[in-house]
Amino acid sequence: MRESRYWILSLGAAVCLVVLLGIHLSIMHLDTLLAYLGVVNADPLHYQAVMARGRSGGWVLAYILLLAFGLYHGLYGLRSVLSEVVSPTGQRLLTWAVVAVGFIAFTWGTYVVIKSSLMGGV
């Protein structure tokens, strides 16, 4: 595949990330702001709250999308930066290393999301 395809995919992932990560960050950290906007969200980090989110279908999808877009965009960027410092002989190795890290992280992350959605009683 031509490099331009990877690049435009990375841009698309970036736009989706702005939306998804914006929601994720405001829910996890900006409780006062959300309370002003009428969303009551007490202690989102409590185990019950975490698992409650983990069981709802919408959140499962959101987490998997966040994983996919985040890993693709992040690792594409990492490869971009490292390709500018790695010697010409190491470029192919760099690409494969980044792909391997992405594959492992995505598989593990998806496993965790699906496993916790299946864990019924807390």
């Binding site: 031509r2 490099e3 331009s4 990877y6 690049w7 390709s83």
Partner: peptide, 9 residues
């Protein structure tokens, strides 16, 4: 130019 060390750097 549409290569790893072309436009996208």
């Amino acid at each position: 130019v549409d290569t790893l060390h072309g436009l996208w750097r």
